[in-house]
Simulated assay, not measured.
Amino acid sequence: MKTMRLLGILLLVWLGATGAQAAVSALDDEGRTVTLPAPARRIVSVAPHATELLFAAGAGAQVVATVRYGDYPDAAKQLPVVGDANQLDLERIAALKPDLIVVWAHGNSAAQLDRLKALKLPLFHSEPRDLAQIGDSLRRLGVLAGTGAAANAAADAYATELAALRRQYATRPPLRVFYQVWHQPLLTINDRHPIADMIRGCGGVNVFGAEALLVPTVSREAVLAARPQVLASSSVETREDETLSPWRGLSRFEPVAKQAVVMVPADLISRASPRALQAMRLLCEGFERVRARR
């Protein structure tokens, strides 16, 4: 018995000395199993929302590079920048010797993703489709980064806040909402988009929810025909700007006529990260102001 105990102690010492760790696996948002021989220690994020997810999951210390606009939290601003959504510096990424790259399937160009795949490095595709999946993403990235305890705590806190927001606003009198992604061309979202989940959670009804495309192009005439009661959109400075130019002077467009325009900071509402709940709260409060005026 003493001999077995001694062998066990020696084995633990050897494992610690060699840094041997068990393999880790997690499903990404495309349903692919990502398996690493050990928790990732050098992670490259090639999407701003992925950078936020990694830091929120307790893996900020392992992130060795990000991309343009990957600027939250403040610590992310100190990281090397290896490109943007359209162009990545593949040589620099390879030189960093990452053991995991977190990508955005519909945010990074297909050509750039193909070049990343050619590096034969593990890729985790991150694209939460609703608000609940953001919390789930924290847990899965925590598994791959070996920061499960921190990631689970963050996901639990996120789930609690999300549930509270839905309890407060989801059953409020419904409002018909047109969410404008961009004005030239005129882009909106269908009901499979995380922003549509925010709208539902605030008691809103997305007037283009049944569209087939995730981000469809619509005409001004189609928007008028949908008869929205609220126009919601985003801007850098949360104020009405040129993005609302298609609607100026249209007195028959109810959101303009009744001042039912809700603007939310772009970096909050456009990133599938825990800060999406800040955007949702602002959206809900904006809807409440519209209800009060009605």
Rank of each mutant, 00 (worst) to 15 (best):
T3K: 14
M4W: 12
R5E: 15
L7H: 11
G16A: 13
L27I: 03
D28M: 02
D29T: 07
R32K: 15
V34A: 02
V34L: 09
V34C: 06
L36K: 12
I43Y: 10
V46M: 06
A47R: 08
A47D: 10
A50I: 01
A50L: 02
T51A: 13
A56V: 08
G60E: 06
A61R: 02
Q62N: 12
Q62Y: 01
Q62I: 07
T66A: 03
P73Y: 15
D74L: 15
P80I: 01
V81C: 14
G83I: 10
G83H: 04
D84R: 13
A85V: 08
L90R: 02
I93K: 06
K97M: 15
P98E: 09
P98G: 12
P98R: 14
V102C: 08
V103R: 06
A105E: 14
A105T: 13
G107A: 05
G107N: 06
A111Q: 14
Q112G: 04
L116S: 09
K117C: 09
A118N: 05
P122C: 04
L123T: 12
H125W: 06
S126T: 04
S126P: 11
S126K: 00
Q133W: 03
Q133P: 05
Q133L: 05
I134R: 01
G135I: 00
T147A: 08
N152V: 10
D156N: 07
R167F: 00
R167K: 12
Q168T: 14
A170P: 00
T171R: 09
P173S: 03
P174R: 04
F178M: 14
F178Y: 15
H183S: 13
P185L: 09
T188K: 05
I189E: 01
I189F: 11
I189K: 04
P194I: 01
I199S: 11
R200P: 05
G203L: 09
F208A: 05
L214P: 10
V215G: 05
R220C: 08
R220V: 04
A225N: 10
A225M: 14
A226P: 08
R227P: 01
P228G: 07
P228I: 06
P228Q: 06
V230R: 05
L231P: 01
L231V: 10
A232S: 04
S234T: 12
E237W: 09
E237C: 08
R239Q: 14
D241T: 06
E242W: 07
T243V: 06
W247F: 13
S251W: 13
S251M: 05
S251N: 12
R252I: 12
R252T: 14
F253A: 04
E254R: 15
E254N: 03
V256S: 01
K258P: 02
Q259T: 05
A260V: 06
V262H: 03
V262I: 11
M263W: 07
V264M: 09
D267E: 14
D267V: 09
I269Y: 09
A272N: 08
A272Y: 00
R275L: 01
A276H: 07
A279W: 11
E288Y: 04
V290Y: 08
